[in-house]
Design a protein around this nucleic acid. Structure first.
Length: 318
DNA sequence: CGAATTTGACCAGCGC
DNA sequence: GCGCTGGTCAAATTCG
């Protein structure tokens, strides 16, 4: 059975490791169990309504327990992620200091695609005491807000499109020296005044991975935030430019806003509230759509309903 | 027909 | 100064 389409909303959480058979790691074992119980129900003609109600209540309790467990696991995952991230920040900062000393000769404005020399605190290192024009200062501010996102795609997919919830207009494409795959240049077209640019190029090591480099900060709200509740967009981006470096699977990605967290001390404030009504609503919709998209679930539902109807007809005739 | 994309030309920065 | 390279512009083309 292919549950891959369900993985999207379950975040790969194995919510119920105790139920062994065929559960996989999709976190939707419960749905399948309900499914099975629905299938069984018509056969149990002698089961009274009371017993059925009791079973349903029991099932509901299990759903609640599982939901609680999922929430707890999600919280733990978020906490672990934050801890790891702050460690990574610390490590990068230390590396940065060393690298800056080694590369003082380099001009500050020369940042190629493979240049990882970006201060995560939003400060661009400049050792020169030259007078700086406002234009140059502005450029440095923009360049300081650089983030990179890795998106895994199908190798057959030749388009350089990274769905991140924003609207982009392609304004150029170039083959660069260090990578035979062309690099595409995008500008944010959601707001005319938005200064954010995006470069997308396939990774030279793994051509199935798209490397999207964001420059600048959006000065408007995210289009995905507006579309999220409609359920049409499977990408949930909370906040502005995704600051995190993520290796997403082919398909939907969940980008968490990390740009506002300048230090590890305020990391918690940047984590989206999982109990926020918007997020809950979105998750519920995604889960519902995941269920309805599965043909086996719908066919089982149809079988269960028709079985129930058939059963009712039989009892009425008696 | 308007919007989006493509693509060759152009420009600026850098190294030699 | 010249060539190379990355980035941007804008006319041409394609697409919905």
């Amino acid at each position: 059975m292919d549950y891959s389409s369900w993985v999207d909303t379950s975040l790969d959480l194995n919510c119920n490791p105790f139920r062994g058979h065929e559960m996989g790691t999709d976190g939707f074992g419960l749905a399948k169990e309900m499914d099975a119980s629905l299938m069984e129900r018509p056969r149990k003609n002698n089961v009274s309504v009371k017993e059925q109600t009791g079973a349903l209540v029991e099932e509901l309790n299990r759903v609640n327990a599982e939901n609680k467990k999922l929430t707890e696991m999600l919280t733990v995952v978020c906490e672990n992620y934050n801890a790891l991230r702050s460690q990574l920040m610390e490590y990068k900062r230390k590396n940065q200091d060393i690298e800056v000393v080694n590369s003082k000769k380099r001009k500050s404005g020369n940042s190629s695609n493979n240049d990882n020399n970006v201060d995560m605190n939003g400060n661009s290192e400049s050792s020169s005491t030259d007078e700086e024009t406002p234009k140059r200062q502005r450029e440095e501010v923009i360049k300081a807000k650089i983030s990179r996102v890795y998106v895994k795609t199908e190798t057959s997919d030749t388009s350089l499109v990274v769905k991140d919830g924003y609207q982009w207009r392609k304004y150029g494409q170039k083959v660069t020296r260090d990578n035979p795959c062309p690099r595409a240049y995008f500008k944010c077209s959601f707001a005319p005044s938005c200064p954010v640019k995006k470069k997308v190029q396939r990774s030279i090591e793994d051509q199935s991975i798209l490397v999207a480099t964001y420059e600048g900060e959006h000065n408007h709200t995210n289009a995905a935030q507006m579309e999220a509740t409609s359920g049409s967009n499977r990408t949930l981006t909370l906040g502005s430019v995704p600051r995190s470096t993520s290796l997403a699977s082919a398909g939907p990605t969940i980008n968490l806003d990390l740009i506002k967290s300048k230090s590890s001390t305020d990391v918690k404030t940047s984590v989206p509230r999982l109990d926020a009504p918007e997020v809950r609503h979105f998750l519920v919709e995604q889960m519902a759509s995941s269920l309805t998209k599965d043909p086996k679930f719908t066919s089982a539902l149809v079988a269960a309903i028709s079985g129930k109807v058939f059963q009712d007809n039989q009892t009425e005739k008696r």
